[in-house]
């Protein structure tokens, strides 16, 4: 593993969904540090302060949030974050193709998951993350 540490950010204004995501990630047996935020602005401020190129940052990002939405969050971290060590997974209830296309325009977004995020979705995501960042952070069925 080439990263010294892995940080996971859950950015969603729905506390129930944050709890569900935490439980689902637990199921994947990940040991990463996990922080949650209920709006984009507090997540940007936290992330900017702690951003370190030696750490892998995985951000599960909702779109529709108060104060600063998911698109605003992405715009702000684009200025300093690198796709080498930052992967954003958009997690939204939206089934609108426009949202999917818009998320693809960001160099940091690695996937778009439509809520509810089920075990099989996370397993597919695990394969993608392990291969992209040469890590075994997520335990897949093959592991």
């Amino acid at each position: 593993m080439r990263f010294m540490k892995t940080r996971i950010l859950l950015v969603d204004d729905d506390p129930v969904y944050t709890m569900i995501m935490r439980k689902s990630l637990q199921m994947q047996n990940i040991s990463a540090h996990c922080e949650s935020f209920d709006n984009g602005l507090s997540a940007v401020e936290y992330f900017r302060e702690r951003y370190n190129e030696d750490e892998l940052n995985l951000i599960f990002l909702d779109i529709n949030m108060p104060i600063l939405d998911g698109w605003g969050f992405l715009d702000r971290i684009e200025n300093f974050a690198s796709p080498e060590n930052v992967g954003v997974i958009v997690v939204s209830s939206s089934v609108n193709e426009k949202d999917v296309q818009r998320s693809k325009s960001s160099r940091l977004v690695i996937d778009f998951l439509i809520k509810p995020v089920l075990r099989e979705h996370l397993e597919m995501l695990s394969v993608k993350i392990n291969s992209r960042y040469s890590t075994t952070l997520f335990k897949t069925r093959r592991d």
Partner: peptide, 26 residues
């Protein structure tokens, strides 16, 4: 489309996720 995606689907998706973790014994 925005209302359906972000307002209507949000609690529906939450319901589905809650039932899912209930079913999976998590």
């Amino acid at each position: 489309a925005w209302t359906q995606s972000h307002i209507v689907r949000a609690p529906v998706a939450r319901l589905m996720a809650l039932i899912n973790i209930f079913k999976n014994g998590l």
